[in-house]
Structure formats: C-alpha cells, structure tokens
C-alpha cells in the first residue's frame, strides 16, 4: 500500500510552521513558545484559550498541517482519522488537576481541568474544530512509539478505515518528577497522509509499509517522524514546491498519482 504526505505542520521550541511556508523544521530541547490563538488562527476562537497547554500544542500543529494540505476549511464533516504518539501525554495537566484535589480535601476539584486529563482530548478538540469523524487514539510505546503510530496510520488507511489520516507526535516538556529521563525535545508535529491516487493535492513524497511492518519514505526506511518530515520538506524544496496559495502546476511531477 502506498500513501502520500500532503501536509506538514509543527510547533517546536524553534517556532511554528508548515511545510509550504518553506521554513526549517527544528526540534531543539528548549522551551516552547506561548501558543496564542492569534499565532495559530485568524478568527476568534474563545475555546482555544480555555484549553490546557498540551491540548493547544497538539491542536495548533494539527491546524498547521491541515492548512498545509489545504484541508483546514470544511463544510461537511469528513472521515479523517488522527493517530498521535506521546511519551508524557497530559501529565503536566494531571499535576495541575491533582493539586486542585490536594487542597481542601477535594472540595476544589476542577471539572474544567479534569476534562483535559486524558491525552486523547486534543484529538477530540481537533475533531470538533475541523469536523473530523475518523477514529483517533494516542500511542505510547516503550520504544519506537512514533513508528508504531505511523504503522497504524498506514494500516488503517490501507484498510479503508478513513480516507485521510493525521499522524504525529505531541509532548510538552518533561514533568519535573522524571529527573532520570532523557531531556526529549518538546513539541508537536503532524503529517497529513492520504492514499495514493485519492488526492490531487501537492505531495511531499510517498510512504509505503513493507511486509515486515516497517515504513519507508521515498524508498528509504523511516527513522522517526521529525526526520520523515524533514526529508519531505527537502524533497519538496528540491522540486520547488509552489508558494502556499498558488495553484499547483500540473506539468511538474508533484502528483505521484
């Protein structure tokens, strides 16, 4: 089964961006920027400011990826799935919520914070915001979590579970009580992946799932999602991807289909 990447969006310590803006994707182990509504959405979106930081991070990266694939705007709900990988999930929010029950023996438990103490909540927020009715879940693995995420995205796509899938990673900074862990780079990165032959959007390259379950991008094994995204951006740069709002040139070979 072959699929294509049609959108890339991210929020990292180096900034926010999307593939067709031709900005560099870097994921340094540093503090994330403040994710304001104005930085992500043009129109007022009061709900965004009420979300926890983890949710805003994931939702922002999804918004940039969908915008990159020209899929942000919608009029009818669509069967688009979301599969994301995380290490710490919403643990920072869990800490905030836990502190509301520690004081005054539970009298001040916050229902608002509790609603964000599941790591899949940002998938639900994205589903509401962008009308996405496909399946969605969070993958966390002791190792190769991102590759499991990609493998499942491709398996579901090939099985016809959904027509398009957002596959990505989302993590805030490591919570304070994990001093022994490696300081993984915080940030969120999402790829829009569609079945080959079912899209007329410009593509970054082709993904394939080998029989042993290992994913390949443009014929090379995928190491992780950040490297995959960079290779896609490089491939697009080499093919001189058009500026964001210019219609694709049918004479160029971006359309693998």
């Amino acid at each position: 089964m072959t699929a294509v990447i049609t959108g890339i969006g991210w929020v990292t310590a180096a900034g926010m961006g999307r593939g067709k803006d031709r900005t560099r994707l870097e994921m340094p182990a540093a503090s994330l920027p403040e994710i304001t509504r104005q930085a992500v959405f043009n129109a007022p979106y009061p709900r965004f400011g009420r979300m926890d930081r983890y949710c805003r991070l994931g939702l922002a990266a999804i918004a940039f990826a969908l915008r990159d694939a020209a899929l942000e705007k919608w009029s009818r709900k669509r069967n688009v799935g979301i599969i994301a990988s995380t290490v710490y999930g919403c643990l920072n929010t869990d800490v905030d919520y836990c502190d509301t029950i520690m004081s005054q023996e539970g009298r001040l438990a916050s229902p608002h914070l509790f609603a964000y103490t599941l790591p899949n909540c940002f998938l639900g927020e994205a589903a509401i915001r962008f009308g996405l009715t496909g399946s969605g879940f969070i993958v966390s693995a002791p190792s190769a979590s991102e590759l499991w995420c990609l493998r499942m995205a491709l398996t579901n796509l090939s099985g016809g579970e959904f027509e398009t899938v957002l596959c990505g990673i989302c993590d805030l900074a490591r919570p304070p009580f994990f001093p022994e862990a490696d300081p993984a780079a915080p940030g969120a990165l999402f790829l829009v992946i569609e079945a080959l032959g079912r899209t007329d959007r410009t593509v970054y390259g082709a993904l394939r799932l080998n029989r042993d379950g290992t994913p390949e991008f443009n014929g090379r094994p995928v190491k992780n999602l950040a490297t995959l995204a960079r290779e896609g951006l490089n491939a697009a740069a080499a093919r001189r991807l058009p500026a964001p709002d210019r219609p694709p040139d049918p004479n160029l070979e971006w359309h693998f289909a």
Binding site: L118, N120, F137, I138, V139, S140, A141, W148
Partner: peptide
Amino acid sequence: GGSLNINAACASSTL
C-alpha cells in the same frame, strides 16, 4: 515482538 499502549478514553481497549 514489540509493545505499545493505546489511549482513547473509555474506548481504549475496544480500539
């Protein structure tokens, strides 16, 4: 053979 956790709230194990 590898391992992972799936989290989808109360539909986690169904998924």
